[in-house]
């Protein structure tokens, strides 16, 4: 079989710079997506069922609880019905949860238990390609859920501004930030028990980051602290978009989440390389 030629070009200057930043090649990383899509052909029910969770939350919290709460002050201090207030936050938390499930549990499984990444590394793919491809998959999966959720929000009349079109890419940005961060964190975990740390970080964020009520109930110091959490960034961004109270702070939120994801990615590439390519 001699003579079969290599399809992998020598790394050029740009590729090297990218590699140094810990960003893989998309052309190679996409094979991770393809593989995951193939797997979910067998377990599509799991994939599909993920869509219902935020919808149950929306019905329960938005309408059930909404009946008790009435209306609250949305962004810009305008009173909005509770369901309108809570729906974008649920979208943000579902983007966070999806990315974190994929980025911590599934990633940990393939990294430590299953030795799947070891197999992949014996092919032309590099640790950075794996990181990029897996995060890409988390975004595809999360994007499907976000899309469905937004459609339901719109049907229920919970979208009150055309800016909401941008809520879809914004939800992807939330997934990117949390997915990268979760994968990065998962590379430091040694046992399944360590993954409890992930829920120790996400549950408080989910409950406290302005998801279910405005953060101005907090004392100033606590409020500032909470506004620094990545979920608050996502919630505030999405709430501003779906209610139309758009301002420049959205750009700050986007930058925050993108940087979070990029840092996560580069940690993943480095740690996967160091651990598996020993």
């Amino acid at each position: 079989m001699a003579g079969s030629s290599s399809t992998v070009p020598a790394p050029g200057g740009f590729a090297r710079l990218r590699a140094r930043m810990g960003i893989g090649s998309w052309r190679r990383g996409i094979h991770m997506l393809e593989r995951n899509a193939m797997v979910y052909r067998h377990t599509w029910l799991i994939l599909f069922s993920g869509f219902f969770e935020p919808v149950f939350l929306l019905v329960g919290m938005g309408f059930g609880l909404g009946g008790l709460v009435g209306s609250v002050n949305g962004p810009g201090g305008v009173a909005v019905p509770y369901a309108v207030f809570v729906a974008p936050a649920l979208l943000a938390s579902s983007a966070m949860n999806g990315a974190i499930t994929e980025g911590s549990w599934n990633f940990f499984w393939k990294f430590r238990e299953d030795r799947f990444y070891e197999t992949v590394l014996s092919t032309p793919l590099s640790p950075n390609d794996i990181a990029l491809g897996e995060l890409g998959w988390a975004l595809v999966r999360g994007g499907l859920y976000s899309m469905g959720f937004l459609v339901i929000m719109a049907l229920m009349g919970l979208v009150t501004s055309p800016w909401a079109i941008l809520a879809f890419p914004a939800a992807l940005v939330v997934g990117f930030g949390f997915g990268g961060a979760a994968m990065g964190a998962a590379t430091f975990m040694r046992t399944w028990q360590d993954l409890d740390f992930v829920s120790m970080a996400t549950v408080p964020m989910l409950l406290l980051s302005g998801t279910f009520y405005p953060v101005d109930v907090y004392p100033d110091a606590l409020r500032v602290l909470i506004q620094l959490t990545p979920l608050y960034q996502g919630v505030d961004m999405l709430r501003k978009l779906t209610t139309g109270a758009v301002d420049a702070s959205i750009l700050v939120h986007v930058a925050y989440l993108l940087i979070l994801g990029l840092v996560g990615l580069s940690v993943v590439g480095r740690r996967v390389g160091r651990t598996l390519l020993s």
Binding site: R27, H31, M38, V39, T43, T119, V120, P124
Partner: peptide, 18 residues
């Protein structure tokens, strides 16, 4: 890849080589 069938194992692995 325990999540895939035999044939898919081969095809998907081939994808890693483009």
């Amino acid at each position: 890849d325990v999540d895939l069938t035999l044939r898919e194992n081969l095809i998907v692995y081939g994808r890693y080589f483009d």
